[in-house]
């Protein structure tokens, strides 16, 4: 390629030592398999966290809706009887309690643990049961 390089001859190429080629290949494959396994674990944690976060947000929104409904009813029905006002106040308290419960609920693998049940968005029934239990 270059006459100058001819003045600096380098040794001929050699094969990778056969006895260690297989051992090193196997070690490499094991290493990358272990790294793949390791890299999937944080991904699972992120997904789990996202799922519980979504469940939490939905439950909180429902609770906010209940609370707002109670307050709206309360402000629109100034002429109502004392019994009606008490009902609205109870609904408002239940909504607020629900918000606190949902936000404080511990996250689990699939969603949030609430009222002895794990709530996920995949199960509307579960969600409804959880809301009722919390309320």
């Amino acid at each position: 390629m270059n006459p100058t390089l001819d003045l600096l001859p380098i040794p001929a190429e050699r094969d990778f030592p056969a006895e260690s080629l297989v051992a090193r290949r196997d070690a490499l494959v094991m290493s990358i398999a272990a790294e793949q396994q390791h890299s999937r674990a944080p991904l699972r944690a992120v997904l789990r966290s996202a799922r519980s976060h979504i469940s939490r947000v939905w439950l909180a929104l429902i609770a906010v809706f209940v609370a707002v409904l109670a307050l709206a009813l309360s402000s629109l029905s100034g002429y109502q009887s004392r019994g009606g006002t008490t009902t609205e106040a109870l609904i408002a308290v239940a909504g607020a309690a629900q918000i606190i419960t949902v936000l404080a609920a511990p996250a689990t693998r699939d969603g949030v643990r609430l009222g002895g049940q794990v709530l996920t968005l995949r199960s509307r029934e579960q969600l409804a049961r959880g809301v009722i239990a919390a309320a």
Binding site: E13, R14, F16, L21, R25, L28, V29, I32
Partner: peptide, 18 residues
């Protein structure tokens, strides 16, 4: 498929080694 990477190693190990 780790075996795929193993085959790449076998294919290019000599060049990288030298």
């Amino acid at each position: 498929d780790g075996a795929g990477f193993g085959l790449l190693f076998e294919r290019h190990a000599r060049s990288v080694y030298n």
